[in-house]
């Protein structure tokens, strides 16, 4: 009887709640599904914007770079044109050289300056970082203008030095390679300092003490401990600065206009100028510029990985 009762209970009582549960579960599931659809619908504007203004244009640019000037034939002529033309190759070379040079110089200055900054009291350090932050916002058109009124043809310093009779600035021309370098370095330094300064916080005083207790000199400390610790952030900063100046447009536009052959200025005049629009060629050069920047990032990551492996 006892067994039967159990059997009865199991057969008759349990299935009913199970059925109910299923029904409720289904209801809940349906509700969740409905809610999920609403939530997905809320994502739609974002997806539209990303496709319309980020992914779409990028794909269009890459696609457009494989068309002939008439926009109908599919070809790689545009790339061949670039690599056969002395003029465009020079633009790429100029951009690369200026970016490399300004990035290397700024990183070196920033490494030294950031170290010097750490030597002051916390209050002064904060103030110095604030100046760096402040000046890092001074870029583009206003910055170029500022250099023009100081060092341009009729600039204050130019006139002043010529009156004093200094021939040092006689050869100096702001609207040239040297001028560009000077301005690029100016906007890179504050950024580099802000990027490198935090990594000095990672070098503990105790490490220096331990190193000197073990008989190491200041030089050997920096050679074997300090610089290896800083290296990832130095390399990372370098590639950010490099990419930053490869893509810089406003500063160069304001300073040299079309008088100097730079990749970004060439692209601009090919896709959005009043004369001789060649959007396909511009697209191809845009692809090359993007590729260089991705290359810089890739290089950065590889270097970081190598450095970290060495550390381990």
């Amino acid at each position: 009887m006892k067994v039967d009762g159990n059997w009865f209970n199991e057969r008759t009582v349990k299935p009913i709640p199970k059925l109910l549960e299923n029904k409720e579960e289904r209801e809940v599931l349906r509700k969740i599904k409905k809610q999920k659809i609403y939530l997905l619908a809320l994502l739609l504007p974002f997806i539209l914007f990303v496709i319309g203004f980020e992914i779409g244009p990028l794909v269009a640019m890459i696609k457009n770079s494989f068309y002939a000037d008439n926009g109908i034939q599919v070809t790689i002529d545009q790339y061949i044109t670039i690599f056969k033309s002395k003029f465009y190759l020079q633009a790429i070379q100029n951009s690369l050289v200026i970016s490399l040079f300004s990035a290397v110089t700024s990183v070196i200055i920033a490494v030294i300056a950031a170290y010097s900054i750490t030597k002051f009291s916390q209050k002064i350090q904060n103030r110095l970082l604030m100046i760096a932050n402040m000046t890092s916002n001074f870029e583009g058109i206003p910055l170029s203008f500022s250099f023009i009124i100081l060092l341009g043809n009729n600039g204050l310093f130019t006139l002043l030095f010529s009156k004093i009779g200094g021939d040092v600035f006689a050869d100096f021309n702001l609207y040239s390679w040297t001028g560009l370098i000077l301005v690029y370095i100016y906007f890179q330094i504050p950024l580099a300092i802000m990027l490198i300064y935090p990594s000095y916080q990672g070098i503990k005083k105790q490490w220096k003490e331990a190193s000197s207790l073990l008989g190491g000199s200041t030089l050997s400390f920096w050679l074997h401990i300090g610089i290896p610790v800083l290296l990832p952030s130095i390399v990372g900063t370098f590639s950010i600065l490099f990419a930053n100046s490869m893509g810089a447009y406003a500063t160069a536009y304001a300073l040299v206009g079309s008088n100097y052959n730079l990749l970004s200025l060439q692209i601009a005049s090919l896709v959005a100028s009043d004369v001789a629009l060649k959007p396909q060629l511009g697209s191809a050069m845009g692809v090359l510029l993007a590729a260089t920047m991705i290359g810089a990032m890739w290089f950065n990551e590889r270097m970081m990985r190598r450095i970290r492996r060495d550390l381990r």
Partner: peptide
């Protein structure tokens, strides 16, 4: 939808690596 976080991050951080000069080429085309 935390499984899509990587995708969102990639889409959101991509503009950081694309200078306006490159972005403008595609935008003008489209």
């Amino acid at each position: 939808f935390s499984k899509w976080e990587g995708l969102l991050q990639a889409a959101a951080m991509l503009p950081y690596g694309i200078p306006p000069i490159v972005g403008a080429v595609g935008l003008i085309k489209v």
